[in-house]
Every structure is written in structure tokens, then in C-alpha cells.
Amino acid sequence: MKTYSIDDDHISNFLTEKVLEEAEFSTEIQSFLSAEDALNFIKQDYEANVPDIIFLDLNMPMMNGWDFLDALAPYKDNLLGKCHVYILTSSLDTSDTARSKDYDLVSGFIHKPLTLEDVQVILAEIEDKA
């Protein structure tokens, strides 16, 4: 399962990668330190580069998580069911949780750090949908 971790905090990316490896969630994990980089990469080759799962941080300079989601909105119809976005944030702000509900592409909202339990839930959800 192709998985991207988008977070400007490299420690966070590192932790996400390690947990996913431990859970044997994915063999193909790629981290991006900025949302813009991730977006450009996806746009480069739309067919090949769209991942199955994206772990997206919200609080990033320049293009934050919401901006990234807004940038993907035009491709929403093609992405739905194919690409699952999980917001992975340190934020405990409930307004962020509420806001994430407005985005169809967002499959879940996870508070950092990502745990094995979180990954189990995600796997179960994806299997349900599939």
C-alpha cells in the first residue's frame, strides 16, 4: 500500500514511518517535508503517484494541511475511494476536528503520535470499504 507522510517536522515523519513499518502496514512509505512538494509530486504523474494513504499534518508553513486539501479538491472525484487522507496532527483543537468533517477526502483524524492501535483501526476501515 503506497503511503505518504506529509509533515514539516522530520521527527514526526520519522515516528510515523517507524510505526507503519512496525505494523507492517506498508512497504512503500514516502515522507514529504512540505505539502507543496507532495502536491507537485502527485501532479507530476497523476496515475502513478497517487498514494492509497496520506498522513497529513495541518500546521505547516506556506501551504498548510487545509491548503493541501483545497488544492486536491479539483481531483476529488477521481481520488474518492482510491486515496484515503488521514489528518495526523499534534493539535488538540476541537475546531480542527470539526473542520476535517467538511472534507470528503478526509477518512480520519488522528492525534499525534501515531500508534499501532491507530494503524490497526485504519487497516480495518480500509478493508471494510474494500
Binding site: I11, S12, L15, S90, L92, D93, D96, K112, P113, L114
Partner: peptide
Amino acid sequence: FTYIVSHNLRAPVANALGLISMLTK
């Protein structure tokens, strides 16, 4: 300040939690 707490303070805390969990394993 809520924002600071939820993002800027919480971010290193979340990292610390993740790292501690990793360290224990």
C-alpha cells in the same frame, strides 16, 4: 495561546510521546 498549546506545545509533546514509546520497544 490555545493554538500555541494545541500546536506548538503539543507538537513536541506528541513527538516525545512517540519517541518514548519507540524507546521502550
